[in-house]
């Protein structure tokens, strides 16, 4: 690789990200999480469903790295499979919420005033609902499961993406290059998707990265409250709930259940902040 090539890599977004130690730590944590989720079947030392009541509440040991739960199931194996659920819920719900928010936000920012007001009213109404209250209400109406969790997360978070998309769209709409496009007869759809969308996506990735751990903790919180996944599903929140229920019998379950949540929160938060530093031109200049 020539000096010029190396220098150019240093100035790319990925290069700048990789030069930040915090970002490297974040990527490492996230990569580990992804590996655990993808290769859970191969890594897990035990069947996460296998009951062994006689060995319940076992402390961490070489036999059970993170001990066992109230039904004698291996906690480490359950947390590995829990990573799969956490990632599935996180990526699906963030993806859906971002997509819905992006579409509505762009329409609100580019469309007529009355449509903007109507969509803003929808955003405000949904944002006014506390997540947990909505989760409890929907949890009582719908059967417990990942579908319910994803629905709650999407309903409570898409307006956040919508607001960002609307503000960005409004700011870009007033730019000269958009006026030029209009003058050349470009259709609204072309302006929206060819010129505004690429400029809105940057802040979206940052927001999504920061929101992922929030979403994972919402799933954990719902499972903790008994309105999340069905009993037996190896979700991190369900492990925490078991830990809470049996904290007088063993402290290990709640400690073990909390570790991946702490790690994933740190990982995605660091990644989001590093991405913001790299992608935001203002912050780049200040550095």
């Amino acid at each position: 690789m020539s000096i010029a090539e190396r220098s150019s890599f240093k100035y790319t977004a990925v290069g700048r990200l990789m030069s930040d130690p915090l970002a490297v730590a974040a990527v490492t944590i996230i990569a580990l999480l992804v590996l655990c989720a993808v290769f859970a079947d191969a890594i897990a030392p035990y069947d996460y469903k296998a009951l062994n009541v006689r060995e319940r509440f076992a402390p961490p040991s070489f036999v059970h790295l993170l001990g066992t739960d109230n039904l004698g199931r291996d906690t480490f194996s359950r947390l590995l499979f829990g990573a799969r659920i956490a990632l599935f819920v996180g990526l699906t719900s963030v993806g859906l919420a971002a997509l819905i928010g992006l579409m509505l936000g762009m329409v609100a920012g580019f469309g007529p005033r009355w449509l903007d007001n109507a969509i803003l009213f929808l955003f405000d109404t949904l944002r006014a609902y506390p997540t947990i209250i909505l989760a409890l209400a929907l949890g009582a109406l719908l059967p417990p499961g990942l579908g319910t969790v994803i629905l709650v997360v999407v309903l409570t978070t898409f307006s956040e993406y919508g607001r960002v998309a609307r503000t960005q769209t409004q700011a870009l709409s007033a730019q000269e290059f958009i006026d030029a496009e209009r003058a050349m007869g470009a259709s609204p759809a072309r302006i929206l998707f060819m010129h505004i969308l690429p400029n809105v996506l940057g802040p979206f990735f940052i927001l999504a990265a920061i929101n992922l751990p929030v979403v994972i903790t919402i799933e954990a919180g719902m499972s903790f409250l008994g309105v999340g996944v069905a009993p037996g599903t190896p979700s991190w929140g369900a492990t925490l709930k078991d830990g809470f229920d049996y904290i007088r019998n063993t402290p290990w379950l709640i400690v073990s259940g909390g570790i991946p949540l702490v790690l994933v929160t740190l990982g995605f938060t660091f990644l989001g902040e590093s991405l913001r530093d790299v992608l935001d031109p203002k912050l780049r200049k200040e550095r």
Binding site: K49, L51, V53, N70, L71, A140, P143, P144, G226, V227, A230, P231, G232, D242, D245, Y246
Partner: peptide
């Protein structure tokens, strides 16, 4: 409540032995 959800998971495991797939519905 934890007593019920625990019992339900045991029932789920034992019914699986005879080919019955049990899903558990939890209610407040």
């Amino acid at each position: 409540k934890s007593t019920w959800t625990t019992a339900a998971q045991v029932i789920q495991a034992t019914l699986a032995e005879v080919g019955i797939n049990l899903s558990i519905g939890v209610h407040e």
